[in-house]
């Protein structure tokens, strides 16, 4: 039996009667990197929130490793091996960077109900290894409330990796970073995906990142998928250009670009 890692069928969600996502279907294989792009407000984050159980879909099904996980809780999605990062970073601000990871690692090991022993001595090695991967080792002992935005994004990624996920959901993982750092971080993430056979679904507004790393690209507009396929095909799609990519002033060929001063 060759079943997909993730299979989504006619997923739909509306807020107070206003549809945000309508009938989205797609599949994601192990080791595949799939990008979900679309204008602001298209429903990308809403899709993510349904996939990890944050919000309940109004209709449709989600199959993860062949099992129906529609509307299961974020906790059970985590236990099944789904890690995610948030668009608006969600970290434990009263803890240091390392403690954030230690908490997640303890949770993964099922030890978080232990009422004794020092938590900040647990899983130090594993935490530091993850921090190395995302380039945060130097800031391990800083309070995470004082990190710059880009560093918070790295921390998000590291936390999402603590349960050795087989599916990684990343909502704008590189927002707030410099171009090269974006590329580095994405490259590191892609390497993890290939080596551990992890499926990745991510959104991003930086098209350089999307077209370099994604195996396939889906385009969402007003809650509906309007295009799906190989990056180069999607890039040339006229509708996608009109509603999302624009004239390519900002990403791509700089020399040709001109804004009237």
């Amino acid at each position: 039996m060759n079943q997909s890692l993730l299979r989504v069928e006619s997923l739909a969600k509306s807020y107070h009667g206003v549809p945000a996502v309508r009938g989205v279907s797609f599949t994601l294989e192990r080791g595949e990197i799939l990008a979900l792009i679309g204008p602001n407000g298209a429903g990308k984050s809403t899709c993510f929130n349904m996939l990890n159980g944050q919000i309940r879909p109004n209709a449709g099904t989600i199959l993860f490793e062949g099992q129906d996980v529609t509307a299961s809780s974020p906790r059970s999605m985590w236990r099944r091996g789904v890690g995610r990062t948030f668009q608006i970073t969600a970290t434990f601000t009263s803890m240091t960077v390392r403690e954030n990871l230690q908490t997640a690692l303890l949770s993964h090991a099922g030890q978080l109900s232990r009422p004794f022993g020092k938590a900040n001595r647990a899983f130090e090695v594993e935490a530091d290894a993850l921090l190395d991967r995302v380039g945060l080792r130097g800031q391990a002992d800083r309070s995470c409330g004082e990190l710059a935005y880009g560093d918070l994004k790295r921390l998000e990624l590291a936390v999402a990796l603590t349960n050795s996920p087989s599916l990684l959901l990343m909502d704008e993982p590189t927002a707030g970073m410099a171009p090269k750092e974006r590329a580095d971080l994405m490259r590191a993430t892609a390497a993890i995906a290939r080596e551990r056979n992890v499926g990745i679904l991510f959104t991003e507004h930086d098209m350089d990142i999307v077209f370099e790393h994604a195996d396939r690209v889906m385009v969402l507009n007003r809650g509906e998928l309007i295009a799906m396929g190989a990056p180069d095909v999607v890039r040339q799609d006229r509708q996608v250009r009109a509603i999302y990519l624009g004239e390519g002033l900002v990403h791509g060929d700089l020399a040709a670009a001109q804004v009237r001063h």
């Binding site: 990890n52 944050q54 809780s73 974020p74 906790r75 985590w78 236990r79 995610r84 948030f86 969600a90 970290t91 434990f92 601000t93 009263s94 803890m95 403690e99 230690q102 908490t103 997640a104 303890l106 949770s107 993964h108 030890q111 978080l112 109900s113 232990r114 009422p115 004794f116 022993g117 020092k118 938590a119 900040n120 647990a122 936390v159 603590t162 349960n163």
Partner: peptide, 27 residues
């Protein structure tokens, strides 16, 4: 002791960000 134990960290995690806490398996 409880505050610095894993349970205490779980509590602080929920306090700081229940969104993130739920997403890493803490009820």
């Amino acid at each position: 002791i409880l505050t610095f134990s894993p349970f205490g960290y779980g509590l602080r995690a929920v306090r700081d960000s229940s969104l993130r806490a739920e997403a890493i398996g803490i009820g």
